[in-house]
Nucleic acid binder design. Structure first.
Lengths: 226, 226
DNA sequence: CGGCGTTTTGAGATATCTCAATGGGAGTGG
DNA sequence: CCACTCCCATTGAGATATCTCAAAACGCCG
């Protein structure tokens, strides 16, 4: 989700005219860590927005549900990402660990109070949300325009870029139902599409179905129609 | 799109520690106006991001295209909305008038320079992008989870709330193809769905097909499954 | 009045969903 | 250590919502 780059001080690049005593990272270092088991919620829609969280380990699914229970995952948050930013006093989305995870808790009020007098921090938040917006738009294009195989291919490519670095093996760290709810498909279609990609020799699925080896990245990107 | 509330000065609510000489609205008042005919572009993906625009009149479709020409409209921008904000030096989206429109042009560099030393303005931009993000997420839920009739109903409800005030008559001010590309449907499905809603006596479609009267708002909201 | 772009409507094709059954792994308790 | 259970993934077969292709009607503008 929101990738706020680590730095030694929020004032590193440009001196602020409204200095504060404590940098974002300093606060982060002291913030309490919370451990979550798979499926445990970080927060739910409607909860008071007391904290902003930074993912330390694991994967957090940020999602919205319709009254009848259908669920759209908006984003997966990986280590380093921030979740829970917003302008309202209540959460408008829910967030749930897909596997056992750790998050660091930061007071939302304190963060936003800092930003009120610290242009550098406010601008950092602004730019971060712009990035988040770009990611959400990208998912919207995928869900609105692409076929099932294109969606799954795009998802795998995005996951590789976001979490795997140079490696061509990715760890899904989530269930098929999570992927389905991200891409606007059913679990059966996700499963069928993954086996189709395996049949096409574009990917390998390891025993357990959670680790995937991207054998033909160029082909996968092509299939994603990016 | 980004709804930056009008005010007399960006310092109205809280004195900034980093004052600037010129408020956002003052700049707006002096900014050049550009007139566009239907289908004319405000900017295209890849263009240098020289300006941020505020819509004065008409409707601007902000969209992204896939290599093969499929198009996903991300948002319609109405009078008062800002378009073209971002962190990169190039536009990552295209923007096109759906009907003849007017926009005001503001230097992107100047705006972002102001924000660097004006925490109040930076925070305002942050909050605006948060709202934009919320709208995009909402559309993502619609496109990812809802059926054709739910999507069209949700679109009509959102349009009414956003542009019609108290009135129950809305002006689409766009083609069926624009609605289709917003909702991830085809023009035929949009057309059929609108006539279905008319048959159900939930809406009336005026001669010309561009003005729609929402006869049964409660039912429409229910159909949208919101 | 003619022509063009757009919308509507129809009929058939198809991608994806739904429902159902099977199988594998992980954890639990005997 | 072996059943047993639960959860999840896979696979199949049939249903269906939406798409595609095609034609006709409409409305606007020159």
């Amino acid at each position: 989700m929101l990738a706020v780059q680590s730095d030694q001080s929020v004032h590193a690049s440009r001196p602020s005219l409204a200095p504060t005593g404590v940098s974002l990272d300093e606060r982060m270092a002291h913030a309490a860590v919370r451990r979550l088991v798979a499926k445990e919620h970080v927060f739910c829609e409607g909860d008071d927005r007391e904290h902003v969280f930074r993912v330390e380990d694991g994967v957090i699914a940020v999602y919205k549900t319709l009254p009848d229970g259908r669920r759209q995952i908006i984003d997966f948050a990986y280590p380093g990402d921030l979740i829970g930013l917003g302008v309202l006093s209540e959460h408008v989305l829910s967030a749930q660990a897909t596997v056992s995870s750790r998050v660091r808790c930061l007071s939302a009020a304190a963060l936003e109070r800092m930003a009120e007098t610290d242009a550098s921090l406010a601008l950092k938040l602004y730019k971060s949300v712009c990035q988040e917006l770009a990611a959400t738009r990208s998912l919207l294009v995928t869900v609105g325009q692409r076929s099932a195989i294109e969606r799954v291919a795009a998802f795998l490519v995005a996951l590789q870029r976001r979490t795997a670095g140079e490696s061509s093996t990715i760890n899904l760290a989530m269930r098929r139902s999570d992927i389905a709810d991200l891409l606007g498909l059913t679990i059966e279609t996700v499963s069928r599409t993954l086996t189709k990609l395996r049949t096409m020799a574009v990917i390998d699925i390891e025993q357990g179905g959670t680790r995937v080896h991207l054998k033909d990245m160029a082909r996968l990107i092509d299939l994603a129609n990016e």
